[in-house]
Amino acid sequence: MMGKSQNDIQSSITDLQVRRLDSSPSRNMAQPARTLNPPIPDSLTEPPPRNPARSQTPAIPGNTPIRRRTTKKGNCKGCSEPITGKSVSSADGRLTGRYHKECFVCTTCSEPFQTATFYVIDDAPYCERHYHKLNGSVCIGCDRGIEGQYLETERNQKFHPNCLTCSDCKRILKHDYFEMGGRVYCERDAFHRAQQGRFLGPGTGGSNRMQRRTTRLMMM
């Protein structure tokens, strides 16, 4: 093997030193760049705009809440307290004043009216029954109120036209009738009882006698 010259040996040493320098880590090697968060758009940081349809009036410190105004309708005729809400009054004006709904009851029995119909006496509301009792318009036959035509007897008793009937045969009596012992009979049954001597006979008289009565047709 041929020996290397001095120049070749020097070149090899220099080349080896260069390789060692290249393979060793460098202290001045650049550090990897840090990833920065991208800037947040202004549209994400600002509060969302208010919905104009749901906008609210900002509260003013020191101001009291605004209350709705209520229109007074005077005092209730039933309890004398002020009326601020719904009320009841007469549609035809026959009854004056206004009432709370719970105060609008019959003056006599204090029961609420079942329908929109009520009766008035001396500017006070009444149910049907107590109105007719106070008005003297109760039918003797059915004990109900009379409105319209009625029959009035000589004793001022009032009947619906179809309520004056014979006590025996229940026949409707339109004009004349017979009274015996405080009961009403048609002509046939009255004579039949008279013949039997139940009400007419020796020693009888007064209210037990058969008496002819008449009626008159009236309008309430």
Rank of each mutant, 00 (worst) to 15 (best):
P39A: 07
P32R: 04
L44P: 01
L36Y: 07
I13G: 02
Q17C: 11
T35N: 08
T14F: 01
R27N: 11
T45I: 11
S26I: 00
L36V: 15
S11Q: 13
L36N: 08
L21I: 04
A33F: 00
L16A: 11
P41Y: 02
N28T: 11
P41R: 14
N28M: 09
T14N: 05
R27F: 08
I13W: 01
S43I: 09
T14C: 02
S23L: 11
N37C: 07
I40C: 13
D42C: 05
I40A: 11
L16V: 06
Q17F: 14
S11T: 12
P39N: 08
L36M: 13
P38S: 06
L21M: 04
D22A: 09
Q10G: 05
Q10I: 07
Q31L: 08
P38Y: 03
M29G: 08
R19Y: 02
D15A: 15
R19Q: 15
A33E: 06
A30N: 05
S24E: 08
I13P: 02
D42Y: 11
I13S: 01
P39D: 14
L44S: 09
I40M: 13
Q10W: 05
E46P: 01
R27Y: 04
I13A: 01
R34G: 07
S12M: 06
S12W: 08
L44N: 07
D42E: 13
L44T: 03
P47I: 04
R34D: 10
Q17I: 10
A33N: 04
D42I: 13
P25G: 05
A30K: 05
T35F: 07
L21F: 02
P41A: 10
N28D: 15
T45C: 12
P25Y: 06
Q10T: 08
I13K: 01
D22C: 05
Q31S: 09
D22T: 04
P38L: 03
T45G: 12
P25M: 10
Q31T: 12
R27I: 07
P25C: 05
R34N: 10
L36E: 14
L44F: 15
R19N: 04
S12R: 13
N28H: 10
Q17M: 03
E46W: 09
P41G: 10
V18D: 01
S12E: 15
P41W: 03
S23N: 07
D22G: 00
P38D: 04
Q10K: 14
V18R: 01
A30I: 11
S24C: 10
T45D: 06
L44I: 08
N37F: 12
P39Y: 12
R19A: 15
S12Q: 13
P32C: 00
L36P: 07
S12I: 04
N37W: 10
A30R: 06
P47C: 06
P47H: 09
P41K: 06
E46M: 08
S23F: 03
T45F: 09
R20W: 01
D22W: 01
S43R: 09
S26W: 00
T45P: 00
P32W: 00
D42R: 13
E46T: 10
R34C: 12
Q17P: 00
Q31E: 08
P32I: 02
A30C: 03
S11D: 09
T35R: 13
L44C: 04
T14K: 11
M29P: 00
T14W: 01
L44G: 02
S24H: 14
I40R: 15
